[in-house]
Design a protein around this nucleic acid. Sequence first.
DNA 1: TTGTATGCGTTATCAC
DNA 2: GTGATAACGCATACAA
Lengths: 356, 356
Amino acid sequence: MATIHDVAARAGVSVATVSHVINASRNVKTETRDRVLAAIADLHYRRDGVARSLRRNKTGTIGVVVADIASSFFAELVRGIESAIQTIDPAFNYILSNTDEDAARERKCIDVLLEKRIDGLILTPAGGNEAYLSDLISRPFPLVFADRAVSGVDADTVAVDNVSASRDIVRHLLDLGHRRIALLKARLPVSSINDRMTGYREALHEAGLPFVPGLVIESGSKVAAAVEAGRVILAIDPLPDAVYCTNDFMTLGMMRAIHDARLNCPRDIAVAAFDDFIWANSFRPQLTAIAQPAFAMGEHAVRLLIDRMGEHRTGHGVHLTLSTEMLVRESCGAHRTIAGGRRNLRKAEEDLASGN
Amino acid sequence: MATIHDVAARAGVSVATVSHVINASRNVKTETRDRVLAAIADLHYRRDGVARSLRRNKTGTIGVVVADIASSFFAELVRGIESAIQTIDPAFNYILSNTDEDAARERKCIDVLLEKRIDGLILTPAGGNEAYLSDLISRPFPLVFADRAVSGVDADTVAVDNVSASRDIVRHLLDLGHRRIALLKARLPVSSINDRMTGYREALHEAGLPFVPGLVIESGSKVAAAVEAGRVILAIDPLPDAVYCTNDFMTLGMMRAIHDARLNCPRDIAVAAFDDFIWANSFRPQLTAIAQPAFAMGEHAVRLLIDRMGEHRTGHGVHLTLSTEMLVRESCGAHRTIAGGRRNLRKAEEDLASGN
DNA sequence: TTGTATGCGTTATCAC
DNA sequence: GTGATAACGCATACAA
């Protein structure tokens, strides 16, 4: 592989000139420049980014550590991150790591990334690495939390208002007449999930309803675990009117459990979901859900990070709260889009169920 | 940030000794070793991976360039890649780039990655960079294609047998009595999609049915475009009995179009899909689909790549073909899981439709 | 307008 | 068992 020295030799100039041509960092006589460019083309020279990184003390690479890219929320978040990065500098990129919500793995990932000298890190913290992260930002190192805040760690954060969004969708359930509302809660020690439970409690409280611990079922944060938890909910006697699922995995599990039990949503039990899906409009029941601006969250995370990286801004963490959208579809029993069709739909569903 | 020199000074040894302690690359007296380790801890020393990469001429980072991580197939593929990488070496990682099936962007991405001196590349080629890729492997550079082969580029490839999988699922459609089968085909100049169309044609031919160009609708490879294409299919007169969708985006678009038209799948039109979804069991209609072993494909891609990287194997590309699975559910009209419930289901669906 | 030479932090060769 | 030092390929301060 050709080096800058080879190019210099072939063009009959010094390495400094070659470097300056490549980086447009000082005036070079047009004719010289052309000779250099020609040599670069002839030799198929490609600048060595590693040597460059060593010299400049920056890599042009950031770390992106999320729970699971296979979850559409994180996938969209990452797409937003990539989009923003590309816009700012096409030579910038990111190393992705999935933690599966495991704190030990999160820590390992970050250690490796730090050794690779990433310029910054966007993280959806799994919870459990407070001291480690606190230490990290105090170096200081550019770090942005996405989706979740970490109490005691004063880093930039981009998230949504999980409390109020949850309050809204549980209110919606209440408005539709549901009273016994179960909560299918991901067992994750993170702010977003806790906040969603808080919103649930607040909505119940506003409505003068008691908080019933027996209606709160926790689940591991994978679909298989959520299916099990969903079964537990369906075994509650009497059957709850509705279930509020705190993230996409919980929703998938709940729907699967409902289907396996040959029950019908929303007739037998309503489901409200945190997190929307791209296919929510294409299949049945159409999910009533809180949609997060995942892509925009990614973009904002990058902006915050670049900001930290550039000016070596070292002040307090800034918290960005983006707004969510409640998409009222049919899984809670609000068949708004089917004019006058509610009774027929119910009937159809009954027939459907009786066929099982 | 502390360097190896700082550590050496503090421990009262040479940098060579420190390096050897870190890398366990030669015997060091226990007492010396402990002093070094203590100094490392005291100074919070962390080896500089950039300098190390420069010296060793390898980065421990590979490139992963896919069409769109938001598509569950690619997400699973990437998870498989990460899993295999982690197993082989926890310090290995990958830079991810999404091309959105754009050849120019693919090329740009790879250029940037090469400048960063990735050790190898796993690519789902968008098509259109044959010469560029051919040049790349001839350097030689470790390159593995996933999901798709590129004609004229002799690189390692891991994929499935798209022809026979498609033949099977179209046969399934034919077995169920469907005759006018439309093809919703992603407009992608890649082998996998072309092969799926080939399988479709072969199944028709076997059944003595003509290939009707008017039943083949091409669509841009995004959901929005696929919805439009789905509308075109639904406007064909008379309505086709069934549609075979060549990838997940097509399926999402088709289902959305069916829903928007207030039609019912499978009663009004059957849908067979290439690519399964994690939620296919949780929502209705349950999709009859070809499931690809995306995770395993990622793992195998890594193995092939490591192999190339290690021994500097320069021979012909090896092609790995993994097997798919046809999941017969209900979207084609084969209600196998609902014993004797077919008539009731039909009736229910009719009631449902009449309510719209 | 161009060139020379230093150093980024590490690994590895050679010497002791 | 340990140390001195030469690269790795580049960017840049300083010279000319």
